[in-house]
Amino acid sequence: MEFRAEGGSVPPVSDRPKTETSQPTRSPEEDWSLLMAQAQQGDGASYRRLLQSLTPYLRALAHRFGLGGADLEDAVQDVLLTVHSIRHTYDPTRPFAPWLTAVARHRLLDRLRRRVRQTGRETELTEAHETFAAVETNHPELAGEAARLQAAIATLPEGQRRAVEMLKLKEMSLKEAAQATGQSETALKVSVHRAIKRLRGVLGGN
């Protein structure tokens, strides 16, 4: 009992391996079945020729599946990798083209399904998705309060400014800040305390 192989699309005549009934357009060495059989025995040169001769056919097939550009080339590479990883499943007594076409169709359909799933989940952002049209809302550092605070910090004496930046803005620990500045932890605490008191005065807080 034998079912016919599936995979309706077979390589175009120019890419088909030579058979007894087809025109002898290729030398026997270029027969895909023969090259694959030699590749299964570890013949790297035959394998290179096989993969190189498969590539144009795979590109044409991927194009027929609606792929283009980098996606098309990725798909071709994906099929080549699959061919490589399951080359032991090819039976040298059977024609190569249906095997290759079936492998390629599996991989290309997988890719298309993945693409449909991804595009189904993704929503392109438009201006309407921004919180407000004003530039400042999407760039908090430009907002008024933050700008005033940064200006006020810039007016602090060097020691206090560094202490605020390290302990409050960069959220370093007292130990880390002490190591970085060479000051004692107590001195840093005092500097931060004085800096905050001064900032409250400048910014008009309580």
Binding site: G42, D43, Y47, L51, E73, H84, H88
Partner: peptide, 24 residues
């Protein structure tokens, strides 16, 4: 395309013989 050529080189460089599966 250059990447595909590189891939083919990589696959063929250290090609190991494989035992085809027996008939199913």
């Amino acid at each position: 395309m250059a990447v595909t050529e590189q891939l083919i080189e990589t696959l063929t460089e250290k090609l190991q013989p494989v035992q085809p599966l027996r008939k199913p």
